[in-house]
C-alpha cells in the first residue's frame, strides 16, 4: 500500500509530461488544462508523501540521493505551478514536467529507505544546507528552461517562422527576465547553502573547508553564476548570451549534483 502511494506522484507526473508534450506539438489549448490538473493532483500526493516521510524520520527526507532528487522534483513542480498562476505560460509545463518527471524517476531508481543520519553528520545545519542547495538547483533549472525557450523563440523570430510554437512561447523579454530572476534567486540560495554546509562541516569535523571534488566543483559553479550576474549588470550579458550561460551553468549543476555524487568518495556521497 505504501509502495503504491509512493508511485502515485510518479504516475501523475508521467501523465502530465505526456499531455504537456502533446500540447507542445499539437494545436489544442484545452490540453494544457488537463495537463495542469493531472500535475496538480500529482503534486498534492507528492507533498503528502514528503510530509509523511518528514514526520516519520524527524527531518526533511534529504539524507540520500533519492530523497534529494524527489525534493528537487517537488520544488520544480511547485515553482511551475506558481509561474503558471502568475504568467499563464502553459508551454513552460512542456519543458519543466519532463525534467521533474525524470528526476523523480531517477529518485525511484535509487534506494530510498529512510536511514537515520550517521550520528557524526547530524546537525541542525544539515537540513538547512541540503534544502537551500536543492532549492538553488531548482532556480538554476528554471533559468536553464527559460534559456532554452529563449533560444527557440529567438530562432523562430529570426528565421521568420511563425508556427504554433511561436504563438505559444512568450516574449523574449519575459524569458530573459525569467532567466535573470531565477539566477538572482538561485545564487543567494546556493551561497547560503554553501555557508550552511561549511558551518555544518565545522560542527561535525571542526574544519569549515576541506578540499574535496564536490566542494571544488560547487565553488566553480558558484563562481560561474557570480560572473554571469556581474556580466549582466556591467556589460549587458543578456538575451542570447545569458540564455547560453544559463544552459552551461545548469550543466555544471547537474555535473556537481549527480556525477560527482556517484563517482567520488567523500562526505557528500549519499549512497
Amino acid at each position: 500500500m505504501e509502495i503504491l502511494l509512493y508511485k502515485l506522484p510518479l504516475l501523475f507526473y508521467f501523465a502530465g509530461t505526456v499531455v504537456y508534450l502533446l500540447f507542445f506539438s499539437i494545436k489544442k489549448d484545452s490540453l494544457s488544462n488537463i495537463a495542469l490538473g493531472v500535475t496538480g493532483i500529482g503534486f498534492l500526493f507528492h507533498t503528502f508523501i514528503l510530509i509523511l516521510r518528514t514526520v516519520e524520520s524527524g527531518h526533511l527526507p534529504l539524507s540520500n540521493l533519492s530523497g534529494a532528487l524527489s525534493f528537487f522534483s517537488w520544488g520544480m513542480i511547485l515553482t511551475y505551478l506558481v509561474l503558471e498562476y502568475w504568467y499563464r505560460i502553459h508551454i513552460l509545463g512542456s519543458f519543466i514536467l519532463p525534467l521533474a518527471f525524470l528526476s523523480l524517476l531517477s529518485a525511484a531508481a535509487f534506494p530510498n529507505e529512510i536511514r537515520s543520519l550517521q550520528p557524526d553528520l547530524n546537525s541542525s545545519w544539515f537540513g538547512i544546507h541540503t534544502t537551500l542547495t536543492v532549492l538553488g538547483a531548482v532556480a538554476f533549472t528554471i533559468a536553464f528552461v527559460a534559456g532554452m525557450m529563449y533560444l527557440i523563440q529567438e530562432k523562430l523570430l529570426k528565421s521568420k517562422r511563425f508556427n504554433r510554437l511561436y504563438y505559444k512561447l512568450p516574449s523574449l523579454d519575459l524569458l530573459d527576465h525569467l532567466n535573470q530572476w531565477s539566477i538572482s534567486v538561485g545564487f543567494p540560495l546556493l551561497t547560503l547553502g554553501i555557508l550552511a554546509g561549511a558551518l555544518w562541516a565545522g560542527d561535525v569535523w571542526g574544519a569549515y573547508w576541506v578540499w574535496d571534488p564536490q566542494r571544488i566543483f560547487t565553488s566553480v559553479t558558484w563562481l560561474f553564476y557570480l560572473g554571469m550576474i556581474h556580466g549582466r549588470l556591467t556589460v549587458g550579458w543578456r538575451g542570447r548570451k545569458a540564455a547560453y550561460l544559463a544552459i552551461i551553468g545548469f550543466m555544471g549543476v547537474v555535473f556537481t549534483f549527480f556525477i560527482v555524487n556517484l563517482l567520488v568518495e567523500g562526505p557528500h556521497r549519499f549512497i
Binding site: Q153, Y166, P170, S171, L172, D173, L174
Partner: peptide
C-alpha cells in the same frame, strides 16, 4: 488576438520581442 493588418503586424512582433 493576432493582428491581421500589415501596419499592425509590427506591433505583434514587437510584443513577442519586448513583451510590454
Amino acid at each position: 488576438e493576432n493582428s491581421v493588418s500589415v501596419s499592425y503586424a509590427a506591433v505583434g512582433l514587437a510584443k513577442k520581442i519586448f513583451g510590454d
